[in-house]
């Protein structure tokens, strides 16, 4: 293919690494840490919940930067990055929302509540879903790329809001502001257990970040491949 050998090898290595990390974090979540005292087994969801959040967060930031870069340089690769990041980010963000909702049922006694952070996260998801609608609605490819870049910048306001909402409305019942907080975690007895929770949490977040980068990279290659196929088809049609 047209990719350099070393990059392909890096991607391959990343793919294996993310599979390995996923297995290790799975084992850590289910066997390394014990169940949490006040929440019981359901607390284990929490690791994936946060991991998926950080993955989607990273991807949306990437899409925001890609939007700015596309408007500045007009290179198609930035548009590819934006589209790929948002598509994968939507998946991760959905994992984040759904696991949060399932976790909330036994803990908060409700599937859904208009907690500030929950609200902003769902707005974020809707904004990026609308981005996909915008892309499919505009036919001229140049204009589509430009509008998509503009909209990805606009949609980033919801990500920004998600970060700062905690500062504006400190009354959120969300247990985590940024990383693990020991106050509402209600960590079990001895200190050794709490470090286990922290370790598992950090490791799972790291795992999801690596997975999101790997899937993003594959998704970009997929986009390149689609374009290549498109140009080959056009060439064939022109010759015919």
């Amino acid at each position: 293919m047209q990719y350099s050998e070393s990059r392909t090898r890096t991607l391959q290595w990343l793919t294996y690494a993310s599979i390995g990390l996923f297995i290790i974090s799975f084992l850590m979540i289910f066997f390394y840490v014990g169940p949490e005292q006040t929440q019981g087994e359901v607390q284990r969801i929490f690791y994936t919940h946060l991991g998926a959040f950080f993955g989607s967060f990273l991807l949306f930031i990437a899409a925001f930067i890609a939007g700015i870069q596309y408007l500045r340089t007009r290179q198609e690769k930035w548009d590819d990055l934006g589209l790929s990041a948002i598509e994968i980010g939507l998946g991760f963000s959905l994992i984040n929302i759904v696991t949060g909702s399932i976790w909330a049922r036994p803990i908060w006694n409700t599937w859904w509540t208009w907690d500030p952070r929950l609200t902003t996260v769902s707005i974020m998801w809707l904004a990026y879903a609308a981005y996909m609608m915008l892309r499919s609605g505009i036919e001229d490819p140049n204009r589509r790329r430009r509008f998509a870049a503009v909209y990805s910048i606009l949609a980033f306001s919801s990500v920004f809001l998600t970060i700062i909402i905690i500062r504006i409305r400190p009354d959120t019942i969300h247990p985590v502001a940024a990383g693990p907080t020991s106050t509402s975690e209600g960590i079990e007895g001895d200190f050794a257990m709490s470090t286990r929770i922290t370790e598992t949490l950090l490791f799972t977040i790291f795992t999801y970040v690596v997975i999101s980068i790997t899937v993003l990279w594959h998704r970009i290659r997929l986009e390149n491949r689609a374009k290549q196929i498109q140009s080959r088809k056009m060439k064939l049609l022109l010759n015919a």
Binding site: I123, L126, A129, A130, L134, G137
Partner: peptide
């Protein structure tokens, strides 16, 4: 942006509402 889209009447609320929700 939405005036240039294919189904602009339909697309406008979909694009607009998530951005104005804050």
């Amino acid at each position: 942006m939405s005036v240039h889209a294919r189904a602009r009447e339909m697309l406008l609320p979909i694009l607009l509402l998530p951005v104005i929700l804050p």
